[in-house]
Amino acid sequence: MVKKDAALVIMVLIFSMIIVGQALSYFAVPYNYGASAETTSDGVMYTATSNSSVSYTVLAYDNAKPIDTLHIYYDASHAVYGTSHASQKSFISQLSAELEIRGFVGSVKVTDAAGLLEVVDAAYEPGDAILITSGVLPKGVYDGETNFKIFDWVRDGGSLYWAGYAIGGKYADGKTLMDAPATYQSDIFGVPDSILTEQRTSTERSGDLSKALMLSRTNVTYGLNVTAVPDTLSVGFEYTAGSGDVYSSIALTQYDDGMICVMGGMSRTSIAQIIASGITPSSTLIGTDGGSLVRGGVAERTIPLSGETDVAVQIRIGDPNVVYARTIFL
């Protein structure tokens, strides 16, 4: 009897396994992680915990600045470039999830053109940052001729994260896409050819901080000229133009008291990493560490410091994809 129905018994067993898999994927996810760090006399001591088998990576860097409020611009009544409103909406939703995985403690506010104008019109609040993924600014905050409100806000100390098109190259007058004056690059960064407008990719990583942050975006199109624009940190992949100038797929530049981060292409994990890490144009990598926790456990180790200021530690669990991360600003 048993032999006769073996195939059917197997079938029932497999169905049961699928239901178990469903529970493990949604209703009874059995994974827990934790991370913390504190300064000690020897440096910065971090702790990574997990109840399952994982690998983890830790990096310490200086001159970090946490973001308290991230304003993400999205307005379906305004033009976008090279994307659709639906894709942009989905991207923002996915980015928010990536930030959550990385333990981003600031508040995330999706704001429309009017809201963005309110943000830049108000006095700069420390910890405020704006993220533009549409590649286009609304006319209320920028028109490339007389209105540079958003850049004035950055000069006062704000942080602007930019992706989607050449920064300042276009603006949106409602649904109409407008070209900024041809001098927009000089107007914004003080030097011509500060943005790469050709289609280019690169696999030349800029350095250890880029690797340690696990940044992977290789699209340099609309990237920043890290040779010509002063006080710039390149953390992406670098393309050397015929002129000898180097452009980076991800670069942060000091903008008076504020900072602009220009990202070529769109990578939700790289953008989430940059924002969650709080790195600034003057950040440098202090050290990295990592290891494995087999069937759970606690890792507790120290990364030595030597007088660096505004140190932050990012503890990431999971490779090649982050399943949990925390950035601790010390």
Partner: peptide, 14 residues
């Protein structure tokens, strides 16, 4: 006890 799933290899990005 499988902890290591994979890695990004820069030399393969192209």
């Amino acid at each position: 006890g499988v902890t290591d799933y994979g890695h990004l290899f820069d030399e393969l990005l192209h």
